[in-house]
C-alpha cells in the first residue's frame, strides 16, 4: 500500500533500549511505520514484543531507564522524539491523545470526571471555565454517557468499568488530537463491553478524522477495527500490511500462527493452531531471524542472517521465504540445537 504524500505520523528506525546492570536490553529494534491521517493502524504481538513501548516512545512517556536510542518520530513532518519535555507536554493531549489499558485506574479517584476533563481542555485550549464545561458535557454525550448532565459531577468510582473507559476516551479526545495511541484499550473490560468500546472508538475517530494506533494482543479486535496491521515479534516488525491481506494471506510464518490461533465460528472441526515455544527473552534473541527456533519453515539462512522487511505479496514481511535467495537448506530444530 502506498502511503499518502504526507503521513500524519512517521516512525523511522525506532530503537528503544533499557540499560540494565547486565548490559543493554534492546526492546524495540529498528521499527519503522507510517500512519496516515484518519487511519487506524493495529499493532499486534505477544506480551513483551515491544508494542506498548513503541506507543509510549511515540507519546514521549517511556519510563526510565528506557530511552529512545536511535531513530526518529515525526508528527506532521516535524520531529517530536527529541523535543524538550515542556514542548512535548503541549503536544501530548493536544495533538496526540492516549488511552491506556485499565480504565479503572486511569482516572484520579479524588476528582470528578468533569473536573478532570475541564482541566485537560483548559490545559490545551483557550476556553473559559464555562465553555470548557460545555465542551466536556458535549464530549461525555458523544461517548455515550447517559444523563451526562448529572454524571459530569460524579467521581470515577461511581462509574462502571465500561463507562470509565468511555470517560477516558472523552479525555483523550477533548483537545481534538490528530492521533490517538490506544494501548490495549479493552483488555481490562468484559468481553460484552469490549465490542461497544471498540465500535465507539472507531466511530468517534472517523467522525473527528483522528488516526489511531491501536496496540493490542487481540487479533479479533484488529480484524474488526484496523485499516492496516503491524505484527511485532521480539521488538521488530515481522509483517505489516493492509488488514485484509494480512489476515487472508499472511506472508510471515509467525503471522500465520497468530491467525491460526483465532477461533473461527465457521470451521467447526479445525483445531486451533498453537505456536510451539515462547518468544525469546530480550537477552537471548538468537542470531538471524528472531523467530527461527519456533518456525516450521526455517532454513539454514534464517539462523545466519537477519531478514529485513521485504515485499511479500500484498504485505511486507521480514522473512527470507520472500527473498529471491530463499531460506537456504532446510534445517530441523534438532539440527539447529546441535
Amino acid at each position: 500500500m502506498n502511503a499518502p504524500a504526507a503521513p500524519l505520523l512517521q516512525v523511522r528506525n525506532l530503537r528503544v533500549e533499557f540499560p540494565t546492570r547486565r548490559g543493554t536490553l534492546l526492546a524495540v529494534d529498528d521499527v519503522s511505520f507510517d500512519i496516515a491521517p484518519g487511519e487506524v493502524l493495529g499493532v499486534v504481538g505477544e506480551s513483551g514484543a515491544g508494542k506498548s513501548l513503541t506507543g509510549n516512545a511515540i507519546i514521549g512517556l517511556l519510563e526510565p531507564p528506557g530511552r529512545i536510542a536511535a531513530g526518529q518520530v515525526l508528527l506532521e513532518g516535524e520531529r517530536i522524539d527529541n523535543l524538550p519535555y515542556e514542548r512535548m507536554r503541549r503536544i501530548r493531549g493536544a495533538k496526540i491523545g492516549a488511552i491506556f489499558q485499565d480504565p479503572l485506574t486511569s482516572l484520579n479517584p479524588l476528582y470528578t470526571v468533569g473536573r478532570q476533563i475541564v482541566e485537560t481542555i483548559q490545559t490545551h485550549l483557550p476556553l473559559s471555565a464555562q465553555a470548557a464545561r460545555e465542551r466536556a458535557l458535549d464530549l461525555l454525550k458523544q461517548v455515550g454517557i447517559p444523563a451526562a448532565e448529572q454524571r459530569i459531577d460524579h467521581y470515577p468510582h461511581q462509574f462502571s468499568g465500561g463507562m470509565r473507559q468511555r470517560v477516558v476516551i472523552a479525555l483523550a479526545l477533548c483537545a481534538g488530537p490528530r492521533l490517538i495511541v490506544a494501548d490495549e484499550p479493552t483488555t481490562a473490560l468484559d468481553v460484552s463491553i469490549q465490542a461497544q468500546i471498540i465500535a465507539l472508538l472507531k466511530r468517534l475517530c472517523r467522525e473527528h478524522g483522528t488516526a489511531v494506533m491501536l496496540v493490542t494482543h487481540d487479533m479479533g479486535v484488529i480484524a474488526e477495527t484496523a485499516d492496516r496491521v503491524a505484527v511485532m515479534y521480539a521488538g521488530r516488525i515481522a509483517e505489516i500490511g493492509p488488514v485484509r491481506d494480512v489476515i487472508k494471506s499472511a506472508a510471515h510464518p509467525y503471522t500465520r500462527g497468530l491467525m491460526g490461533s483465532i477461533p473461527s465460528m465457521g470451521v467447526r472441526s479445525a483445531r486451533l493452531v498453537q505456536i510451539d515455544g515462547a518468544m525469546p527473552r530480550l537477552t537471548e534473541i538468537p542470531r538471524g531471524c528472531a523467530f527461527n527456533a519456533r518456525c516450521t519453515e526455517a532454513g539454514e539462512r534464517c539462523f545466519r542472517e537477519r531478514p529485513e522487511l521485504m515485499a511479500a505479496g500484498a504485505t511486507r514481511a521480514a522473512c527470507w521465504r520472500h527473498d529471491t535467495g530463499g531460506v537456504g537448506a532446510v534445517r530441523t530444530k534438532e539440527a539447529a540445537h546441535a
Partner: peptide, 22 residues
C-alpha cells in the same frame, strides 16, 4: 507510579498540576 498519574501526563497536564493537584 500509578496509572492515573501516567494518564495525567498523557493528557499533557503541567508538572505543577500533576505533582500538586493530582
Amino acid at each position: 507510579r500509578t496509572d492515573y498519574i501516567k494518564f495525567a501526563r498523557a493528557r499533557g497536564l503541567s508538572d505543577r498540576a500533576i505533582n500538586f493537584g493530582h
